[in-house]
Amino acid sequence: MPSETPQAEVGPTGCPHRSGPHSAKGSLEKGSPEDKEAKEPLWIRPDAPSRCTWQLGRPASESPHHHTAPAKSPKILPDILKKIGDTPMVRINKIGKKFGLKCELLAKCEFFNAGGSVKDRISLRMIEDAERDGTLKPGDTIIEPTSGNTGIGLALAAAVRGYRCIIVMPEKMSSEKVDVLRALGAEIVRTPTNARFDSPESHVGVAWRLKNEIPNSHILDQYRNASNPLAHYDTTADEILQQCDGKLDMLVASVGTGGTITGIARKLKEKCPGCRIIGVDPEGSILAEPEELNQTEQTTYEVEGIGYDFIPTVLDRTVVDKWFKSNDEEAFTFARMLIAQEGLLCGGSAGSTVAVAVKAAQELQEGQRCVVILPDSVRNYMTKFLSDRWMLQKGFLKEEDLTEKKPWWWHLRVQELGLSAPLTVLPTITCGHTIEILREKGFDQAPVVDEAGVILGMVTLGNMLSSLLAGKVQPSDQVGKVIYKQFKQIRLTDTLGRLSHILEMDHFALVV
């Protein structure tokens, strides 16, 4: 994948999101292997301009796509893939009243899908469409860049269908997702969380590099694949309309690839034109409109599966009536509230959605109805927002919020430890010299600072030695090549209790 991002070429006709291997024109390309080798690009942008032909009021008969309808489940399912879809609609009884809503608040519980998330729908649909058009064949390999849930859905379907599955996901995604993927037989590649989507090191860039190296491999490409919004247009939206008897006044959905909100909203605009569509985008993402909503100094966020630093091709923002931004604290607070007060075992993005819903639905009156999409299960986040310690460490809970008995030293300040200034190293000294210094002084790690004293990161003896043994660096290389740029900081005025929580999850903390 090139470091400079080429513009994806656009073909003359058809839909841009065809499933299957992508040609340089962004659509299915038939021909000899030699032709494909000559024409197939190194990668295709996940934010390529959409060429979708959908228009409100256009006859369904003019759609270029294969459409399906929700099917009634048999008493005995032939395999677990038949437990994807037909998820329950559940009334939220307490939270709406707590925040003064007059309307009825309903939750579409997508964590009841077989793999635990709304992404099971698009995973199965992308595979079925690729099999139907002859792209996927027995023994082929599926590769997908994902925040985890699409990966789980694909790995689940691949396990049943017999495909090899490789999932490329950023490091910030939970260990629970990784464990589930491994249990399903998927191979996992992790990428830096802070890598831009168009960087060769991003999950998108690495996935395309693997595709170019592995024979008979395919990126189904949830960011561009029409099967993504079509899955929701054909099934999720129809289920909502049936469950609500066609009567709903507002739908609120958090947005990642945009397939969920695009597919549902398009069908609702056709069948229930008075329904307002509300999009939820986390602070630090750029999906919301108008652009002024996205202006923030924050560039990272903890909530998973929603928000991006690019506009995915499948996201149709014209069908969203209003956007709201959400933050991590309210997302996790509301997710825990949904679990504790409503018994809905949902993930953090569901918290984002409901946090926005109780604001947006203030305009609705008694007798009206708001539906929220709860995308995934708490299963993926047992060591994250479900953990009091994690919430404390991230600053989303305060010590006084917890009532468990603490040891005698818990409320003492870090400054009472009488710490001395640490050994520091410059980023320009060599790895070999740094190892000598650390061994001589008896230290395992040291902060790396520039000549102005600005902290650049941390270097550890173990990481340097393993990097040297693996051949990633040489003793003569500058130590700046092996620094940890993500590390926890703590102030002298913070409590030892807070430091204790940090050290339970990290090997060190830097006192500043």
Rank of each mutant, 00 (worst) to 15 (best):
P2W: 10
P2T: 10
S3C: 09
E4F: 05
E4C: 12
E4P: 09
T5V: 01
Q7R: 07
V10Q: 07
G11S: 14
P12V: 09
C15L: 09
H17W: 15
S19A: 11
S19L: 06
G20I: 12
P21F: 04
S23A: 14
L28N: 15
L28V: 13
L28K: 06
G31D: 14
S32N: 01
S32R: 13
S32E: 12
D35T: 11
K36G: 01
A38W: 04
K39P: 15
L42G: 13
D47C: 01
D47S: 08
P49S: 12
P49L: 07
S50L: 07
Q55L: 09
L56W: 01
R58F: 08
A60T: 09
A60D: 01
A60V: 09
S61E: 15
E62H: 06
E62R: 04
S63G: 07
P64A: 13
H65F: 01
H65M: 07
H66L: 09
H66D: 15
H67P: 01
A69C: 10
A69V: 15
P70M: 15
K75C: 15
P78H: 15
D79K: 01
L81E: 15
G85D: 15
G85Y: 03
T87S: 07
M89W: 01
R91F: 08
N93E: 01
K94A: 08
I95V: 09
G96Y: 05
K97V: 07
K98G: 11
F99C: 09
F99Q: 06
K102W: 06
C103P: 11
L105C: 06
K108R: 01
C109I: 05
E110L: 04
F111V: 05
N113C: 09
A114P: 03
G116C: 11
R121I: 05
I122N: 01
S123D: 01
L124I: 07
R125L: 07
R125S: 15
R125H: 09
R125I: 01
E128V: 11
D129I: 01
A130S: 09
A130R: 08
E131L: 05
R132V: 01
R132Y: 01
D133F: 01
D133L: 15
D133Y: 13
T135D: 01
T135F: 09
T135N: 12
L136R: 01
L136E: 05
P138R: 12
G139V: 01
G139D: 01
D140L: 03
T141L: 13
T141S: 11
I142M: 08
I142Y: 01
I142K: 01
I143T: 09
E144S: 05
T146S: 04
G153R: 05
L154P: 14
A155S: 10
A155R: 03
L156F: 01
V160G: 12
G162S: 08
Y163T: 01
Y163K: 04
R164S: 13
I166S: 07
I167V: 01
V168W: 01
M169L: 11
P170D: 03
K172A: 01
K172G: 01
S174I: 01
S175V: 09
V178L: 04
D179G: 09
D179Q: 01
V180Y: 01
V180R: 01
V180A: 13
L181K: 04
A183I: 04
A183G: 14
L184F: 06
G185A: 08
E187Y: 05
I188Y: 06
R190C: 01
T191F: 05
P192L: 03
T193I: 09
S199T: 06
S199M: 01
P200Y: 13
S202A: 09
S202G: 01
V204H: 08
G205W: 13
A207G: 03
A207Q: 01
W208V: 08
L210W: 01
L210I: 07
N212S: 12
P215N: 01
N216Q: 08
I219V: 08
I219K: 03
Q222Y: 01
R224F: 01
N225M: 06
N228C: 06
N228H: 06
P229F: 05
P229S: 10
L230T: 15
A231C: 15
A231L: 07
H232R: 05
Y233T: 01
T235N: 09
T235Q: 15
L241F: 09
L241Y: 14
L241T: 07
G246S: 08
K247R: 10
L248V: 13
D249K: 12
M250F: 12
V255K: 01
G256R: 01
G256W: 01
T257F: 01
G259C: 01
G259D: 01
T260W: 07
T260V: 07
T260A: 08
T262H: 10
G263E: 01
I264R: 06
A265D: 01
A265L: 04
A265Y: 07
A265G: 09
A265T: 13
R266K: 11
K267F: 10
E270Y: 09
E270R: 01
K271I: 10
C272A: 12
C275H: 01
R276N: 14
